[in-house]
Amino acid sequence: MSEALKPLRPVMATFAVLGLLWWGFDALLERRAHPNAGIVTGPEGDRRLTLEAGPGGHYLVPGEINGATVDFLVDTGASHVAVPAHMAERLALTRGRRMQVNTAAGRAVAWDTTIDEIAVGGLRARDIRGSINPNMDSDFVLLGMTFLRHVDMRQRGGRLILSADDDAG
């Protein structure tokens, strides 16, 4: 380092430390917001998943619809899988008949659809009824009961355990 830059060493060291702190806190906040981000979907995925609750007690989990990666919000209050309209084309979903749905924000118009395959971890289900909802602006899909009825669910101490029906014992 040249003599002219020596007085800047403390400033550069301070920025380096601040950068490391920023990176560490960002990783911590991301882990808290998405505690299940590391779950693997596909043939190597577990058929028994233990999901950690995120902020507000919600269970976010990565998965796939028709082979495309999505984030799911587990929603036992949703009768079917609800997909935001802005995601439907990327997921190769076809709009079916127009329908009325009841949401947390009230009644809304949506379109019926059939999802060829949903996978979460090693859990898979085919020909799942869903809806395409133009009023959802989220970047996650509501994983409702048309998928969840195919798995065993247990909730204990901030964790939700999902397992294949045949593994439930």
Results as ranks from 00 to 15, higher is better:
His86Val: 03
Phe140Glu: 09
Ile39Arg: 07
Leu142Asp: 05
Ala33Asn: 09
Arg90Tyr: 07
His34Ile: 01
Arg126Gln: 13
Asp71Gly: 08
Glu89Gly: 08
Ser163Ile: 01
Phe72Lys: 01
Arg129Thr: 12
Met87Pro: 13
His58Pro: 05
Thr114Ala: 07
Pro134Glu: 06
Gly45Val: 08
Glu89Tyr: 06
Thr146Tyr: 02
His150Lys: 11
Arg32Lys: 14
Val141Gly: 05
Ala92Tyr: 03
Trp111Gln: 09
Val40Ile: 14
Gly130Ile: 07
Leu93His: 09
Ile118Trp: 08
Gly77Cys: 02
Thr146Lys: 05
Gly77Lys: 00
Leu142Lys: 05
Arg154Lys: 14
Gly57Trp: 02
Thr76Ala: 05
Arg126Ile: 06
Arg97Gln: 11
Gly42Phe: 12
Val40Asn: 02
Asp137Asn: 12
Glu89Trp: 04
Ala85Met: 13
Ala104Val: 05
Gly57Leu: 05
Arg98Thr: 14
Leu93Trp: 01
Glu64Ser: 11
Gly45Leu: 10
Val120Arg: 08
Pro35Arg: 04
Ala125Gly: 14
Leu51His: 13
Gly96Trp: 04
Ser163Ala: 15
Val83Met: 08
Asn66Met: 03
His80Pro: 00
Thr113Cys: 15
Glu89Asp: 14
Arg47Ala: 09
Ala53Val: 03
Ala110Lys: 00
Leu91Asn: 04
Ala37Phe: 10
Pro134Ile: 05
Arg124Trp: 03
Asp46Met: 04
Met136Gln: 02
Leu91Asp: 00
Asp116Ala: 15
Leu143His: 06
Arg95His: 12
His86Asp: 11
Met153Trp: 03
Ala164Asp: 14
Gly121Arg: 06
Ala88Arg: 00
Asp46Trp: 03
Ala110Leu: 07
Asn135Val: 13
Leu160Phe: 07
Gly56Ala: 11
Asp167Phe: 15
Tyr59Leu: 10
Arg126Ser: 15
Val151Lys: 02
Ser138Asn: 03
Phe147Glu: 00
Asp139Pro: 02
Asp71Lys: 09
Asp116Leu: 06
Pro35Thr: 09
Gly54Asp: 00
Trp111Lys: 05
Gly63Arg: 06
Gly38Thr: 11
Ile118Met: 13
Asp152Tyr: 15
Asp116Lys: 11
Asp165His: 10
Gly42Gln: 10
Asp75Ala: 01
Val101Phe: 04
Ala33Phe: 06
Asp167His: 14
Ser138His: 04
Ala78Pro: 00
Ala82Gln: 04
Gly122Trp: 09
Gly77Asn: 03
Ile161Arg: 06
Ser131Met: 11
Gly63Gln: 07
Val120Ile: 14
Glu117Ile: 06
Thr50Val: 15
Gly57His: 05
Arg48Tyr: 03
Gln100Pro: 10
Arg126Lys: 15
Arg149Asn: 14
Asn66Ala: 09
Glu64Ile: 03
Val151Thr: 11
Gly45Gln: 09
Met87Phe: 10
Arg98Glu: 14
Ile39Val: 13
Gly56Ser: 10
Ser163His: 01
Gly130Gln: 05
Gly144Ile: 00
Val101Arg: 00
Met87Ile: 10
Arg154Val: 15
Ile39Lys: 06
Asp137Lys: 01
Ile132Asp: 08
